[in-house]
Computed example of a mutant assay.
Amino acid sequence: MSPVPYPLEPMVAVRAERLPVGEKWTYEPKFDGFRCLAHSSGGRVRLQSRQGRPLTRYFPEIVAAVAALGEDVVLDGELVVWHEGRLDFPALQQRLHPSGAQAGRLAAARPAAYVVFDLLARGGTDLRPAPYAERRRRLEELLGTRLPHGLVLVPASTDVGVGRLWMREHTASGIEGVVAKRVDQTYRAGARAWRKIRTRLTAEAVVGGVLGSLPEPEALVVGRFGTHGRLRVAGRTTPLDGADRAHLRRVLTAAGTDHPWPPVLPPGRFGRRPAEPVPYVQVEPTVVVEIEVDAAYEQDRWRHPVRFVRPRLDLRPEEIARALGR
């Protein structure tokens, strides 16, 4: 039996604003997927989520790939689904189907890949006390000569320029940013010791509502135009500061009766779980704002809160629609 317990609380990353620099750091691209720990012992493979939820029956192709290694191992990595050259998070979510028969059908229609970035145990030896550099060497040794279909060894580099290149050039493929790890760091279950730096981009959106009140807007509900030219809820901003609230209350106006959105937004619209309906105050969708966003954007919305930058009073909503080709 593996000395690493199952389920295991994984080591996690804390958000940082910029890449740490120095000879003690290494960099890995951050894939947009599900965190997953894979335990293989005595020919039995079990998959678990970051929260300890069993994932084994949802991803039979990954179970088979880990089993094909033919060794007792504990791996840490990210489950992803590729579609048309980029990571497809909605397709990955659809893999969590309650039916076993459906799991097999979905595995054939939208196969997942397991992007492995750490080796926690091998052959009964607990590698968590070893530094990252040693675990990485052993992981490359394990996967370097035989890589079963469905397993991917995550790229890694000690060159900060490569890390910046991943952040700058690979967002279109679904790379969210970079995870920075110290080469001398051990693996400590539950520790928030890695650094996660998300790629930040700017975009324009239309304000369709506010959280809080119109005199005191706490956050904005912003929209983007969908494929049929309809303004759809695209996300919410992080909390506004006092200066931004004062500026926005002067340019936003209460909506009339023909607002394109329902008076209460459906549960889960901003990607939170557990989800509840979201009450908000509708405003006339005439004000365009510049926002700072990350790369997690699919189905015409951002999965994470965005940051308000400034109003774009020089732009009109129809110009945004034309820019998107809608």
Results as ranks from 00 to 15, higher is better:
61 E>Q: 13
23 E>R: 12
127 L>E: 09
117 F>N: 11
40 S>R: 13
120 L>D: 00
39 H>N: 09
122 R>V: 10
18 R>M: 15
18 R>P: 05
70 G>S: 14
22 G>D: 14
57 R>G: 05
69 L>W: 00
126 D>F: 05
109 A>Q: 12
51 Q>H: 15
61 E>L: 00
46 R>A: 11
53 R>L: 11
108 A>W: 01
97 H>D: 06
74 V>E: 01
56 T>R: 00
93 Q>L: 15
108 A>P: 05
76 D>L: 08
48 Q>N: 08
104 G>D: 03
49 S>W: 09
126 D>N: 11
107 A>E: 00
112 A>D: 06
21 V>D: 15
16 A>C: 13
44 R>C: 01
56 T>V: 05
5 P>M: 15
36 C>A: 08
127 L>F: 04
12 V>N: 05
44 R>F: 01
59 F>S: 04
37 L>P: 02
7 P>M: 01
96 L>I: 12
41 S>K: 08
122 R>K: 07
44 R>Q: 10
112 A>K: 00
69 L>V: 06
100 G>V: 05
60 P>V: 12
65 A>N: 07
17 E>L: 15
110 R>A: 08
91 A>S: 15
17 E>W: 06
121 A>G: 09
42 G>T: 11
99 S>K: 05
8 L>C: 10
89 F>I: 08
114 Y>L: 06
75 L>Y: 01
121 A>M: 06
63 V>L: 11
103 A>E: 03
71 E>F: 00
50 R>N: 07
84 E>R: 11
51 Q>W: 09
68 A>L: 02
32 D>Q: 08
93 Q>W: 06
91 A>Q: 13
50 R>L: 07
33 G>I: 04
99 S>W: 01
81 V>D: 04
112 A>P: 01
25 W>K: 13
88 D>P: 08
114 Y>I: 02
11 M>D: 12
124 G>K: 04
35 R>E: 03
93 Q>V: 15
25 W>H: 14
21 V>F: 04
45 V>Q: 03
83 H>Y: 15
95 R>M: 14
63 V>N: 03
115 V>G: 01
6 Y>F: 08
45 V>Y: 02
101 A>G: 12
35 R>N: 05
15 R>N: 13
56 T>G: 12
90 P>W: 15
57 R>E: 10
63 V>F: 02
64 A>K: 00
77 G>V: 04
127 L>N: 08
20 P>C: 03
57 R>I: 03
43 G>P: 09
99 S>E: 08
73 V>P: 00
92 L>D: 12
111 P>H: 04
110 R>D: 09
46 R>G: 07
128 R>N: 09
125 T>W: 00
13 A>D: 06
93 Q>E: 15
58 Y>V: 06
101 A>S: 10
12 V>D: 06
84 E>C: 07
50 R>H: 08
122 R>L: 10
74 V>I: 02
75 L>E: 02
83 H>D: 15
80 V>G: 07
19 L>C: 13
79 L>T: 02
87 L>E: 06
52 G>A: 11
42 G>Y: 02
73 V>R: 00
58 Y>I: 07
81 V>N: 02
42 G>Q: 12
